[in-house]
Each structure stands twice: as C-alpha cells, then as structure tokens.
Design a protein around this nucleic acid. Structure first.
Length: 668
DNA sequence: CTAGGGTTAG
C-alpha cells in the first residue's frame, strides 16, 4: 500500500510540474516567475502545508468532511493540490471552485495563478464555467492583465466571459477598455444582460466624450430590450447621468424607476453633492427618510459633503444627530466628511471633536483636520499637528504637504514653509505643480516678489497658469504693477478663459490710480468673451440658506436690509471706519462709489443676518470670491459695535471676526 | 460564473 502511494506521489508531482509548465505558457509567465509564485505560496501558506503533510502522514484522504474542514481554515487551502498530486484526492469541480473562490475572496494573485496552472492539467482544461470563474478571480485580485490574457486565449467565450471582463475594466478605472468590448461582443452574436449593462453604464459615466455618445447609445439599446426595469441597471443609469452633470435627466430616470432601493437614492444624492447643490441633496435626503428608506454610510457621506459645500451647519447637525440615533459607528469614510462639514461650515472645534471620536483616523482624517486648521488661519496649530502626526508615525502624502504649505503661506510662516517643501523629498513624495504654486504664493505674500519670480524660472517643470496666477495675486497685494502686468500676460497666454487674472490686473491698475488701464483690461476681458462669475454671499438662518448678490434689489426684505446697513454704517463710522473706494473700478464720483461699496453681497448678507438672528449669536457667511478690503474692514468694526462673532468663508479660507479684529490678521 | 452608490487639496 505504502509503495503504491509513493509511486503515485512521484507520478503526481511529475504531472504537477508539467502542469505548471503548461500553465506558464498559457499565462505568459516565465518558469522562474511561477517557481517564485509557488515558493511564495508555500511561504504564506506554510501552516497549511505542514497541516497537509500531517494529513498525508495519516494515510489516504478520502474523508470529504476532513477536506471541508481543511477548507474552513484560514488561508487559500492550496495544500490540497499536493494531495491531488499524490493521488490521495480527486480534483472535481467543487474542489476547484472552492479553491478559486478562496483566492478571490482573499485577493491572492500568486496562489490564483497556481490553481489556474493546475486546472490546465486537469480534465477541466477546456471547461467554460471554470474558466469564467478563473477570469473573475483575476479581476477581483486586481490583475486585469492576467484576466485579459486568459480572455484572449479562451477559444470559447459566453456572455459571462465578456461581462466579467467588461465589469473588470469598469471597476478598475479603465472605462474606455470596457466600452470598446461591447460592440465586439455584439458582433459575435451575444446579447447583453442586466449585469453587462450596469457595468457598461458605470464605465460610460466615467467618460464624457462627444455628447456622451457611447452611454446614450447603450441607454437606447437598454430601453429597446426592456432592461431598464432592473434596479441595478436603473441605478447605474441614474449614476451615469449624474456623473455627466446632467442632474435633470438623472432625476427623470430616478423618478421613472419602478423599484428603487437605498443605492438608487445614494446615486442621486451623491450626484447633487458633487455638483455643490447641497440644498437639493439635503431635500432629497429628508424625502428619502419620509419614504421609508434607511440611509447607509454612503448616504451620510454624500449628505455631509453636501452640507459642507452649502455651508449649512444647522442642517448638518440634524443629519449628524440622525446618524447617531441610527447607531452607526463613526468610521473614517463617513467621519471624514462629517469633520470636513464642521470645518467648512465654520466650527473648527466641532471638527476636532469628530476627529477625536473616530473609530480610527486614516490619512484622509489627518488631511481634513490639517486643512481645517489651515483654512481657519491657524498656521501654528497646523504645523504642530503635522509634527505630531510625523512623531506617531503616520505617513504623510502629497495632499498633507499641500495643506501644510498652504497653512504656512496663509499664516506668513516663510521659513517653515520652505523647510517643509524641502522635507517632501525625504518622504519620497512627488512634487506636483500645486506644491510649486503654494511656494510662489508663500514667497509672494511675504513680499519677496523677485524671489518668487526667480523660483518660477528655476522650476524643473513647466509653470502653468496657476503658478503665474499666484505671482499675480501677490503683485496685487503688494501693488507691483510691472511684474503684475507681466505675470498677467503669462496667465492670459496659458489660460485665456479665466476671468480671475483680468480682474486682478485691472484691480492692480485701479488701486494705483491708473483707471484708463484698468478700464482697458476690463474691455479686453469683455471683448474676449471672458465671463466673470457674479459675486454672491450666502447666510444660513434657521435651516434655510439665503443668497445675496451685489446691489440686490429683488430681495423681499430689501428695504429693511438697506435701512439696517444705514444704521450700521453710521455706527461704525463713529468708531473710525472710513470707506475705502480703491477696490471699486467704476468711473463714478466719490459719493456714488461709496454707494456701490455698500451693496457688496457680504454686506447685504451681514445686514440680513443682523435683522434675523438673536443678539450675540455667531453669524456665518459664505462667499464665492475673496472678500474685498473694504468689506473686510467694515466687518471688523461691525463685530466690535454689535458684539458679534462673524465668520466669513472665502473661496480659500475663513475669516473669524471678533471684537474689531480678524483671525487672518489682515493677511489674506 | 457576470452588476449599481461614499472622503481630504487647488
């Protein structure tokens, strides 16, 4: 008996080696690679292999229960192949499926290749379902190269084969590869099913080619064959249109869904959140609850993002309370968006509380927290927390450094900024254009305009419009006309459609009294068809966000708002406020200029907030462009005379006004 | 055997 075993053992080993060799060719692997795979497999699965040896020692394995028990252990269970090789075990479909599933679940590519090689020597070498499973396994292990090789080598393919590869490409961010497979599949006479279509829509949502041709064509196909009633297909359609930014169509498809689930709602809500339509996203969230759907982590994550973009902390708090009641754990993926919501809607303290309560902080949590400190102008705090992060061994990434550099720039920490820029090399972090922009900003804000220009000239990569734009901004701040005009020219060349540089340059001229040059730049901007985004401010009062544009005369409370500003304006002039008209570019007399200034949107929002909030409460205003010098000065005085804390969120930072001064120390 | 939704910067 024992002689028989040893004979069959050597024969099996010979076959296995041959099997591996055949597998090598089919898999386009070198023999060396496969040997490495095998070695690694035995290393990582060493426990199982020794366990396998024990089994071998205890004679022939025919007991199926014992086999099942072996597969219940952790690891891929690869050692059972040795038993097959030794002739102690018959490899049937179930066994191979179990091994393949195990490799898939654990994402073990090396072991997956070994099982594949083994199958090629068995009588399943031409079996279609088994090969589909192998293909799926490679996809789930993240190796689309292995998946594609196998796909190309399969003489017979069915719908599942094609769908598995299409879904692989769509999941791993190769939408074009997924989309080109579809017509090829149709040419071979195969028709898609709901699995194929939902993968294709996911892929199509990630590309926006000419008028989204691919996605729309597949949508038409889908309608023709009636697959759109499937909830997966329907949801992927909702998501596809949402990713293209076509929220009306997305909503239309959503409304037409016969069956919806929480994923459908999430796709729609996330779409609005991505487009910064926070109010809309929130309305949908409450509607989702009313209709009896249970929010998931995905939902909360999108809703907090929506609140962050809308700056609506009050509603964000309600949603937060709702999440706490639902008993959901504060995991990083959701917690990070919650943290960001508090930071962006003005409460760095609450953001910090969320950070401390997270189940586990990841790199995004740290980055969000640092960004929060940086945007609130807390430069020292940012640097300290960053140092703490390094001390406890958290590996920073490119975004971390961007936060820290931005913080240094905004807080005027010149030396620290340069030090951290150099430090990036020792953390092996690739310097990106945004890091260079921040350094130009850092030098420029500090008034070192020549050094900033020299830095740009010596950059190892080609400067972009953003780099010159940072220099231009610094020139405006320090009123350097010549260099500013030069920087502006570079920006016009590199990005002719941005209104920012035109506005900045005309501001530079205007503040130097060169009003005809200012007007010339304005005219140039108009002639080139460059459009300036209208300036707006928002303020949240009792769960509703109110919007204001400059010189708003359509507002229902218009008269009261203007009266309120008159009163305030008088009060702050009494304690020293002098309207600064240099930020206004119109050819008007002094009196009229002052009128224009008074109606800047943040002033209207502030007056409205003073009318509609209780005395002493904090006022939070959001702006879509930078606050002008005059408004900044006026708000400082208002914070003093009214005894209010006023928090203004700019496009890139926060201003905390309290008792006559601002957290930015007039440096922004 | 094959399918859909979520985070940080600028």
């Amino acid at each position: 008996m024992s002689r028989h075993i040893s004979k069959s053992k050597s024969k099996a080993l010979y076959l296995y080696k041959k099997a591996a060799a055949v597998g090598i060719q089919k898999l386009s692997l070198s023999a060396a690679q496969l040997r490495t795979s095998a070695t690694r497999a035995s290393c990582t699965d060493s426990e199982e292999i020794s366990e396998g040896e024990d089994w071998y020692a205890s004679h022939i394995i025919q007991d199926k229960d014992l086999l099942r028990k072996s597969l219940h252990n952790s690891g891929t269970g690869l050692h059972v192949l040795d038993l097959v090789n030794r002739g102690s075990l018959e490899a049937d479909r179930t066994l191979y499926n179990k091994l393949l599933n195990r490799c898939t679940q654990m994402g073990r590519l090396q072991q997956a290749r070994i099982v594949h090689a083994h199958i090629l020597t068995s009588h399943f070498k031409d079996d279609l379902p088994i090969h589909n499973t192998i293909l799926n396994m490679y996809v789930k292990c993240g190796s689309l190269e292995d998946a594609r090789n196998l796909f190309d080598q399969m003489p017979c393919k069915d719908l599942v084969t094609w769908t598995a590869l299409i879904s692989g490409y769509s999941q791993y961010d190769r939408p074009q590869d997924a989309l080109v497979l579809f017509p090829q599949m149709l040419l071979r006479g195969l028709e898609p099913n709901q699995f194929t279509l939902s993968s294709l829509f996911k892929a199509a949502g990630a590309v926006s080619d000419d008028n989204n041709k691919h996605g729309r064509q597949i949508h038409a196909y889908c309608l023709k064959y009636g697959f759109d009633t499937n909830v997966y297909v329907g949801t992927s359609l909702v998501d596809m249109y949402a990713r293209w930014g076509h929220m009306d169509e997305s909503q239309l498809i959503f409304d037409s869904l016969e069956t919806k689930n929480e994923v459908s709602w999430n796709a729609l809500i996330a779409g609005h959140a991505r487009k910064a339509q926070g109010e809309h996203a929130l309305r949908l969230f409450w509607k989702m609850l009313r209709e009896g759907f249970k929010p998931t982590h995905f939902t909360y994550s999108s809703v907090f993002t929506a609140c962050a973009s809308a700056g609506s902390m009050e509603q964000g708090k309600w949603v937060h309370a709702h999440m706490i009641k639902s008993g959901a754990k504060l995991v990083a993926f959701v917690g990070n968006t919650l943290l960001d919501m508090y930071a962006k809607s003005g409460s760095i303290e609450d953001a910090r509380k969320v950070f401390d309560r997270l189940v586990r902080q990841d790199i995004v949590s740290w980055n969000s927290m640092l960004t929060g400190y940086a945007q609130h102008g807390l430069g020292q705090e940012t640097v300290q927390r960053f140092e703490e992060m390094l001390r406890i061994g958290i590996q920073p990434n490119d975004i971390t450094f961007l936060c820290v550099l931005t913080a240094c720039s905004h807080a005027g920490l010149l030396d620290e900024g340069q030090y951290y820029f150099d430090l990036m090399k020792s953390y092996n972090i690739e310097l990106q254009i945004s890091h260079y922009v921040t350094i130009v900003d850092l030098l420029g804000r500090a008034g070192l305009l020549d050094r900033a220009e020299k830095f740009i000239r010596e950059m190892p990569i080609e400067p972009t419009a953003a780099v010159w734009g940072a220099l231009l901004g610094a020139c405006r701040m320090h009123k350097n006309i010549d260099l500013g005009a030069y920087a502006a020219e570079r920006v016009f060349e590199l990005d002719p459609h941005d209104s920012g540089p035109h506005v900045l340059l005309s501001n530079i001229y205007a503040s130097a009294g060169r009003l005809s040059d200012a007007a010339r730049v304005r005219k140039l901007m108009k002639d080139c068809g460059v459009k300036k985004e209208p300036a707006c401010s928002w303020v949240e009062i009792e769960n509703a966000v109110h919007m204001f544009v400059a010189n708003d005369d359509a507002h229902p409370q218009r008269v009261e708002i203007l009266q309120m500003w008159e009163t305030i304006s008088g009060k702050i002039k009494d304690i020293g406020y002098v309207p600064d008209t240099s930020h206004v570019l119109f050819f008007v007399d002094q009196q009229e200029r002052e009128v224009k200034l008074q109606y800047h949107s943040e002033k209207l929002a502030l007056a409205f907030a003073l009318l509609n909030t209780t005395p002493g409460s904090t006022i939070r205003i959001k702006k879509n462009i930078r606050v002008c010098g005059d408004c900044h000065s006026a708000i400082k005085y208002v914070s003093k005379v009214e005894g209010r804390e006023i928090i203004v969120r700019d496009t890139n930072r926060f201003h905390h006004f309290r008792n006559g001064s601002c957290s930015c120390r007039d440096y922004w």
